[in-house]
Amino acid sequence: MNELHTSRTRELVAVLRRELGGAAPLPPPPPVPEIPLPPARIWPTESHRSSYAERTAGHTTALLGVGHCGTRYHTDLVLQFQAELAVAHGAVATELEADWAEKNGLLPLHTRVSSHREFLLRPDLGRRLNDASVERLRAEARKGVDVQPILADGLSAVACMGAGMELLGHFTRACEARGLSVGTPMCAHHARVWLEDEIGEIVGAKVAAILLGERPGLGTGDGLSAYLVYHPKVGNTDGNRNMMSNIHARGIHPNEAANKLAVLARAMIQQQTSGVSLDLRPLLAELGDAVSGKPQAPQARVRLVEVPR
């Protein structure tokens, strides 16, 4: 029975093998075809993009009218996309230079985070100062000020080291011009937004304002955000804060942002509150759309890859 079964299997395989060509050589590869040169595709330079891309550009920064190769992208688009991705990843991976704060005359502070990876994985540690920084802050920072600005890396040290000093300078002058006293300039490494609570509490500031690199998007790694809170203390939540995002040369210019943030800080001190309970209505004329809760238009998309032809 078993032997019969085995021989039947052998026969089946033999028949199948004959059908597939037996031991005969496999067919040779097909002859080399003539491949017509495709028209060079250049995307999306201003002078050469699809009519749909042209038409939609005024309404959205989404990549539309990009065409396709089979069901995939043209090489041009692949490179543009990879360049945008590289900018975003590069911004996240960049660390604040070790002596950057001192070189810029800022009091250097550090959170409880000990490595870049830990910074990404442990937001709780990025919200508190380490012991040395607490001592240094107590010893060296001016106390009892109206506004304590804190420059910080956040999720983009590139943004912090880029327009950070410009924003801090403008903001300080804009506050002083409104008669507000401003605390010691400082810079925090591996910092999350809520760090402003502990710093503001220690220096006894009425308002704490952390200016930090925001989470990069595709092709954008240099945006700063500002979060302001009245009566900073550990335990505040996001509902206690007011924020402004998209601060960079192609979004809200640092100078313009600084003036609006100073308006906001003064209003917090006048109304003795911040966040959802801050009445923004009297400020709308001065603030515009920036902090009124209305969504912000994105920055225009720029072409990152240019190959000379």
């Binding site: 749909y52 309404h59 959205t60 989404a62 539309l64 912000q296 238009a297 994105p298």
Partner: peptide, 14 residues
């Protein structure tokens, strides 16, 4: 980012 309805429709059509 700003709920531009025309922008939304352009993307939808694509």
């Amino acid at each position: 980012p700003t709920d531009d309805v025309l922008g939304i429709l352009y993307t939808t059509r694509e």
